[in-house]
Structures are given as C-alpha cells and as structure tokens.
C-alpha cells in the first residue's frame, strides 16, 4: 500500500510538471497580453507593469521562476485584480465549488443508482425504457437550456426556490439539480449495464436458491459488485465537479472556481490560468488514485500494482 502511494505520488509530480510546462507555453503562445487595452497604455507604463510582475525577463527565465515558486505552492498575484493572489482566489472559490459538487454528486448517486438497478432488474420492459428515457433526458438537455428552465419552473412559476446565488440552503437546490441531473443519468446508465452483467452471475443464482429475499439479493449481493465500474466513473466526475463547472456557476451566480478557468484566459491572467489548471490536474490524479485504492477495498481480488 505504501509502495503504491509512493509510486502514485512520483507519478503525480511528474505529470504536474509536464502539465505545467505544456500549459505554460501554450498560454504564452496566445496573442495578446495582460496589459493590452482598447486604449493602449504608454509603453513605459507597460514596461513598469511587466517589470513588477517579472514579465520583462526571457520566457525561459520566467518558466524556471514559475516552477520554483510553484514548487513552494506560490502561484503569484492575479493580474486582473490587483491586490489579489492566486492562492487567495483558490481558497475563496474552491470550497464553494467543492460544496456544490458534493451535493450534486450525492443527488446523482441517490437518483442514478436506484434508477439503473430498476432498469436492469426489469430489463427490456417498460420500466427499463422509462428509466433509460429519463436518464437520457437528464443527460441530453444542455445545461444552457436546463438552467434557465429550472429557474423558470421552480423559481418563477412555482416560486418554491430563489433564482440564484449561494446564500441559504434553498439557494443550493437549483444549482445542485442542474449539475446533478446529468451526472445521475450517467450513473444510471452505467449502473444499469453493470447490473445487467452481475445479475446473471452464478452467485446471484445461489443467493436466490438459498431463499434470500429479492430485495436483499438485488441491493446487497448484486449491487455491491455492480458498483465497481460506477466507482471508476465517480473519481474523475468528482474531480470535475469539485473544481467547478462553468455554466452552472454562471447561470446561478455561484461564486465558484469554475468561471476563473475561462475568464482568466480572456484576461490573460497567466498566474490564475496556471494555478487553476494545475489544481485541476492534481485533483483528477488524486481522485484516480483514490479510486484504485477503493477498488482493492471493494473487491479484494484486484491488487494494487
């Protein structure tokens, strides 16, 4: 186990290094810099700003300096908002994204797994079709349409919930739905197909033969094994939603990290682009490692290599 974690850690550092290098040079290849304005700043002022942020050095020197600082966890100041730093920005917005992501994931699991199990159990009957239909509906409506639709129905017509922002528990319901429904659909589909496989295995027949109740057979014996592929999916899914999702955050005015991935490219806020991208990469890889550990825990036949 310790060996496994150590190896994954080495991999993580290596991958983050490659990622940092790739994104660093890709971002710098973009035309336009952080200090380009509609009304251009005097070149002398730009020079001052560049000196202040260390952008006057050669690209190679900047790259080395960036790596050295990043290794110490310092991603520097944000250019777009003077007085703000990348570290502060992540500390401020990541918890919001993480919370929303967790709620959505809980909803997705709570909705997706029963739906998938039902569909598999009543394979090729109307229950299956209905469940699949609902699942696909959840997945195929683009968030750009779903978010305003949820607002229209639950906030404006029924007046059950507030429209947007992230203040009270009630404010969390609509963004959770917007983010979670699509994931629920994905989980339901996966749960259905792996359940279909498991339900015909011998040990399930044995369990039935032993006279165990149908509910116990399906939800205790079959589901445990059917969950393995679902767990594989949960890792990356969690990484994505925890680090922020642009559209949901924009539509529900949620102050998460997701919008900064995109707005920071628009403002050429290099430190923010680097910081958020590397955070994303790190979370994805940690999640994948956790999934592998979880794997061996659910199914002892799988060994950590």
């Amino acid at each position: 186990m310790i060996h496994f974690i150590a190896r994954r850690l080495v991999n993580l550092v290596f991958a983050l290094f490659v990622l940092a290098t790739l994104i660093f040079f890709m971002v710098r290849a973009l035309p336009g810099g952080p200090f380009d304005r509609e009304k251009p700043l005097p070149p002398e002022v730009v020079k001052n700003l560049e000196a202040y942020y260390g952008l006057d050095k050669s690209l190679g020197e900047q790259y080395v300096a960036f790596l050295a600082n990043a290794a110490r966890g310092d991603f520097g100041p944000s250019y777009a908002s003077r007085g703000d730093t990348v570290g502060a920005l992540i500390l401020r917005h990541l918890p919001v994204s993480a919370e929303l992501g967790l709620w959505a994931l809980i909803l997705a699991v709570a909705l997706g797994i029963p739906l998938g199990v039902l569909a598999a159990y009543y394979h090729n009957t109307w229950v299956d079709f209905l469940a699949t239909f609902l699942a696909v509906l959840g997945r195929s409506i683009p968030t750009i349409a779903l978010a305003p639709l949820l607002i229209l129905i639950f906030a404006q017509t029924l007046r059950w919930l507030p429209v947007a922002r992230f203040d009270t528990p009630a404010h969390r319901v609509l963004p959770t739905l917007a983010l979670g429904l699509g994931m629920a659909a994905l989980i339901a589909r996966l749960a259905r197909s792996s359940m279909l496989q498991v339900i015909r295995e011998d040990y399930i027949r044995t369990a039935r033969a032993k006279g165990l109740g149908e509910f116990t057979v399906v939800f205790v014996h079959a589901l445990r094994n059917a969950l393995i592929p679902v767990v594989t999916l949960l890792g990356p899914l969690l990484a994505v939603v925890v680090t922020g999702t642009f559209i949901v955050e924009v539509f529900f005015a949620v102050p998460g990290l997701g919008r900064y991935y995109i707005t920071s490219i628009g403002t050429r806020d290099y430190p923010v682009i680097m910081g958020t991208s590397l955070l994303f990469g790190a979370v994805i890889m940690v999640m994948n490692a956790l999934v592998d550990i979880l794997y061996s825990w659910i199914d002892p036949r799988i060994r950590l290599e």
Partner: peptide, 11 residues
C-alpha cells in the same frame, strides 16, 4: 451582487 448571466438577473 455579482450575477454574470443577464437572463438570470431578469428572473
């Protein structure tokens, strides 16, 4: 209040 999307704002 920061509200990025104007259709949300109108709602």
């Amino acid at each position: 209040l920061i509200v990025p999307e104007s259709s949300t704002g109108l709602a």
